[in-house]
């Protein structure tokens, strides 16, 4: 047992030591981004801000690309029920040159082999504040597994955060040609 632990510890050190972070492309000059991120519910008209873990991860992804983010309070967007209206409100709420709108919801799939499977749907929109028509939109779904029944929509979004962060980073790079 002791020998095995020593071996695995050596292997772990080697593996973690070998990992190199990929270089993240950055904008040539700091470019402010207004971020509006909403979470919607099925069978309810409620609109809420996304969990802090998700908004701060998206903020980190933007900061790493030299795109300082400003989070706009999107919880009061119940009346704006489509992306176009929301993007418009986001543009009006900020002076930032770049707009990032995240619209999310989570749907329960089933209890699958002991875990609760949820599907997080994300619609990410990037546009410049002067050309909303030229917005680029990416829609994607992230399956996540939650172990406890008390973990619901918000926890599903938190669990999907690493994938959403990566997708949003890629979308922004694509939009800016980084």
């Amino acid at each position: 047992m002791l020998i095995s632990l020593m071996l695995t510890s050596m292997l772990t050190s080697t593996l973690s030591g070998c990992l190199k972070q990929a270089q993240i492309p950055q904008a040539a000059a700091p470019t402010p981004v207004a971020v509006g991120a909403v979470m919607e519910y099925l069978d309810a008209e409620t609109v809420e801000a996304v969990p802090d873990a998700l908004s701060s991860a998206v903020g980190d992804a933007l900061t790493a690309r030299n795109l300082p983010p400003t989070l706009v309070d999107a919880a009061s967007w119940s009346d704006a029920r489509n992306s176009q209206l929301r993007l418009q409100q986001l543009g009006e709420a900020s002076d930032a040159e770049l707009l990032l709108l995240l619209e999310t919801h989570a749907e329960f799939f089933s209890q699958l082999s002991g875990q609760f499977r949820w599907t997080v749907s994300v619609r990410a929109t990037v546009a410049t504040s002067v050309d909303l028509e030229g917005a680029v939109v990416e829609e994607f779904e992230v399956p996540v597994f939650l172990f406890n029944y008390n973990e619901r929509e918000r926890e599903a979004l938190e669990a999907a955060t690493p994938t959403i962060e990566r997708k949003v980073g890629g979308l922004v790079e694509q939009f800016l040609g980084l």
Binding site: T31, E97, V126, T128, V130, D131, G134, Q174, F175, L176
Partner: peptide, 8 residues
């Protein structure tokens, strides 16, 4: 930024 958006 606008042209980048159009190209994307």
């Amino acid at each position: 930024l606008g042209s980048a958006g159009c190209l994307a």
